[in-house]
Design a binder for these strands. Structure first.
Lengths: 195, 195
DNA sequence: GTCTATAGTTCGATAGAC
DNA sequence: GTCTATCGAACTATAGAC
């Protein structure tokens, strides 16, 4: 008897989604060049060849993951902007950004995309995504350029401490820094990152 | 007759330095996994085998580049702290950080190191480097945790717009953002990045 | 101190069966 | 819709000559 459960036959759209989800995690952990289509396939529970077949190439898949990640941020921010409770817009946006930590891979994939501005295929996608987010918080949330810039800076710090896994460190300085980066609630940061 | 100039025989120490300088640029552009020892060798004007021979492995070379980059920041910051002119410490540190853009590769290599916290060999080096810089600006420059954190955040944003090459964009929003990120002097940012 | 040659591995992509 | 098998390219690292 086989220890492997039978592979499921899925409609194309669902299979695409499951591959994108797996790819987001693997790309987030290892970066574009460091990730292999075989690791993504294993994470998605299918064969390596099928991953490539579904998206045409590793590069196309990465770009799709990148666009999805930016789209998730846009959605989360628009929802935060229209929430209109007793907090300020910036507070709501910050909260929304932190919540994205729970979906492992989104912020880390973006970090890797933004670091490859030199790549002829990936660079333009990264620039477009970054500017899209900047315009959203400036024009739709109404933050002046200076505040919008500061907000993005705080986001980049969150991405960095998340990638470095400083929240899992037992160094008191690391925890102090993570606490500052996430606006005070270390426990929440850790819980979201552990998810 | 050969069109290639004769290769120079250098003392080991000098050769190591020239390889490290080349590796810093290539790793900064492509990341750890994306860079090849052959690209580094070409940039350094020597053979691929000699690069590996000199450092034992690509990984060892990358770790050495990372430690050098952190060391450069430490040196620059200590110098800024002890400068003691009419500016504030934060202003001097910010200026010192921006000046590092001129040495192509330092900030970009660091960006890539910080994004690989999950890697068993590279992760610890990244965490150690990041915390070293945090402690320096907190304990030696005397910034309270909140200010130190904000300073690091601004640094991460600078790294990001630099990697994305937004300073070369002709999009007005990109330029506005870079201007904010570097504290107002876009021309200076561009000049430094152009090298 | 530095090179050429190459071994050994890994990886993305394609072909073709079911 | 999904797999197995495999090709060909790219890359790190080693061996050995000069």
């Amino acid at each position: 008897m086989s220890t492997m459960e039978t592979r499921q036959r899925l409609p194309a759209a669902e299979r695409r989604e499951s591959i994108l989800a797996a790819a987001s995690v693997v790309f987030g952990d290892r970066g574009y060049a460091g990730a292999t289509t075989d690791q993504i396939a294993t994470a998605a529970g299918i064969s390596q060849a099928y991953v490539v077949r579904t998206f045409g190439s590793k590069e196309t898949l990465f770009v799709e993951v990148a666009r999805r990640a930016v789209g998730r941020i846009e959605t989360a921010f628009r929802s935060a902007i229209s929430a209109d409770d007793d907090r300020t817009v910036v507070q709501r946006l910050g909260q929304a950004y932190l919540d994205l930590i729970a979906d492992r891979g989104i912020l880390l994939s973006l970090l890797h995309i933004f670091s490859l501005g030199n790549d002829p295929a990936i660079g333009p996608v990264g620039r477009e995504g970054f500017l899209t987010i900047y315009r959203l918080i400036r024009d739709e949330a109404g933050l002046p350029p200076e505040e919008a810039s500061r907000f993005l800076a705080e986001g980049m710090l969150i991405n960095t401490v998340l990638a470095l896994q400083l929240h899992d460190s037992d160094d008191p300085d690391a925890l102090e820094l993570v606490t500052q980066a996430c606006g005070g609630d270390l426990g929440r940061f850790r819980a979201l990152a552990a998810g």
